[in-house]
Design a protein around this nucleic acid. Sequence first.
DNA 1: AAATCGGGGAG
DNA 2: CTCCCAGATTT
Length: 401
Amino acid sequence: MDQQKYLTNQRNKEKILQGNNLEQERNKNLQENKAGRLKKIVVPLLQWYDNNARDLPWRENSEPYAVWISEIMLQQTRVEAVKPYYDRWLKAFPTLSALAAAPEEEVLKLWEGLGYYSRARNIHKTAKIVEENYEGMLPSSFEALLKLPGVGEYSAGSIGSIAFQLPVPCVDGNVLRVITRITAEDADISEPSTKKLLTEWVRAIVPDARPGDFNQSLMELGASICLPNGLPKCESCPVSSLCEAFQQNKTTDFPVKKPKPQRKKEKRTVLLILLGDKAAVRKRKDSGLLASLWEYPNYPGELKEQEVIEKLQAKGLSPVTAIKLKKAKHIFTHIEWQLSGYLVTLDESLFSEKQVDWAEFSGGEDDFFWANSDLLHEHLTIPSAFKVYHQILLNTLQSAH
DNA sequence: AAATCGGGGAG
DNA sequence: CTCCCAGATTT
């Protein structure tokens, strides 16, 4: 009896296994069809690109150094936002050697406002590595590029194909959208496995001739025709006849993406503390959000005027007035700062402090550095989160003279 | 696998 | 408001 039960069980297991194999086989064939469909886009896409490529600054300079800088700047950052930074950067650091020789503060200052500041630090690190290990020339293999700080799968692919004509794929958000629509692929693109799969599809079709142009044509299509949020301009698309989503009138169904976690809200109070022609700033801790950048002293919660006075008195300062400023909001990807602020003036006669050079400053969590307008303008990197109050302060300092 | 890391423009 | 951008790295 038990024996028979066992045999039945085994047969069922085999059936299930066989079913799985059949399903896997079907999936494999389906994916090969999708990959096969993709091959047909190469020629029309390159032709379309030749006639429709935007006139972008980094397309006028094909030196690996320039390509590299542009690709890092473009990570998660819109073309329009990058343009002024790119031009200014190449003026300030025309060569990789010039960049490697610059102090990090200068590098960060040029990045001020562009966001994701670890990119700037990694660029600087990489410049030094390349000076030391590669005689000042960026390595030309995909594997070596991938090892550089700040260069991941995408950037190694884009730099490799654009600057070194390597037939390697580069898959960014644009490409994910374009490819999932053409193939009507409903796998979740926020899964790394999905990105891997699509990368292999693209790898199979990147042409040996003009790999960089082909990769750019895919991204360009995503940026100008195959738009997100369900409004693609399919009537102008050079490959709509090859697009499964378009044929099925389902372009808005792709790409499939899992919803984003909710942003946490954080109330903070920013203090503009004036001492003659100087204002208090401090340096953020060297890890986490806005690491090592400069900021105006700010504290958790929505402080009342009296609390502000007391806090400063506890630090040995002598506030004379504290005027409430307008509220502001700054949205990061995962945090929302709800800011309130005060303009505080101190009694200069009661103040004395030794001041080291700003580049040497390394105070504790809440130690102040007194910066004049020139330093704030020319040297200290203050993130955009403080822009509203930064502007108020600069105006105040200016009108006081 | 999930969280972290900026900032801004478009709808 | 929401979405997402020529992503990389850490946890």
